[in-house]
Design a protein around this nucleic acid. Sequence first.
DNA 1: TGAGTATGTTCAG
DNA 2: TGAACCTACTCAT
Length: 265
Amino acid sequence: MPEGHSIRHYATVHSNAFVGTELEITSPQGRFAEEASKLNGRKMTETSAHGKHLFLHFDEDIVHIHLGLYGFFTGRKSSSAKEPGKNTRMRIRNEMFTSDLTGPTRCELIDNAGRQDKISKLGPDPIHNDAQSENAWVKIHKSSKPIGQLLMDQSIIAGIGNVYRAELLFISSYSPYTPGKEVPRHVFDGLWADASRLLITGSKDGKIRTVADNHLTDAEVRLHGHAHNSYVYKRAGNPCRVCGELVRAVDMAGRTLYWCSSCQK
DNA sequence: TGAGTATGTTCAG
DNA sequence: TGAACCTACTCAT
C-alpha cells in the first residue's frame, strides 16, 4: 500500500537492517544490474523518505525509489529468504536480513543534487515533525480546484494518496468538492493534523488504519489487525459507518473518489 | 486462462 | 486528457 506511511516504514526497516553493514546488492531482473554492481559490497550510510519517495544513501550515491502503483518490498531473515523471483528489480542482503524490491515505477542511482531536486518539487510531508504546513495552506488557499483533488497533489502535500484522501475528508466531515480557496483555515489545520497523526500511526506497522474502534462492526473487531478497514475507501454501495447513507464512488480527475454525501457537507 | 482492477507518475498530444 | 508503464490479485469463463 504505497502511500507516505509505507515509504516511511520502509525507510525505518532498511535503516535498522542495513545501515553500517556491508551489503550484497543485485538485480535478479537485470534492469538495475549496472547500478547494483556499483553498490555491491558497500555500506548503506542512511535512509530517508519524503512523501512517496524513498532514498537509500551510500555516501554520495543514493538509490531513489518510487513504488508507483504496484511496487513493494518483501523483507525476510536471510536464513529463510527464498531465491528471488524473476521480477525482483533489486535485492539487498546482509547476514541477517534480505530485502527484495518488485515492480517500482522508479529505481535509479542519483546524487545529492538529484535528491534535492526531487524534494524541491514536492510539498511538505505531514509525517515530518518540522514540515511547513504553511506552504501547503498558501497553495490550497489560492486554488479553485476542489480540495479532494488538491490533497492528492504531491507538489502541495507529499505522501497522501487515494486512501488517505478519502478517509481524511470523511473524518473532517468536509465535502471533497469544496474549492481550495473556500476551505477555512481551521478545516485545513484539522486536515493537516489528522494527516500527520494517521501517517505516523500507519508508518509504525506499514498499514493504513483510520477507523475509530467504536465505528467498527463486531465482526471487524474480532478481525482487528487482519481486516483492511476504512470509513469510505472502497466501500461504495455499503452503508456509511456513521449515518447509514450509502457510500458513493465518483471519478475526480481520473481517480476514484469515495465519500458520504450525507456526512460530508 | 484471460479480463479487469489497483494505494501512482510521466509524457505525448 | 489519455495512454503507457509495471505487477499481483480477483473474478468470470
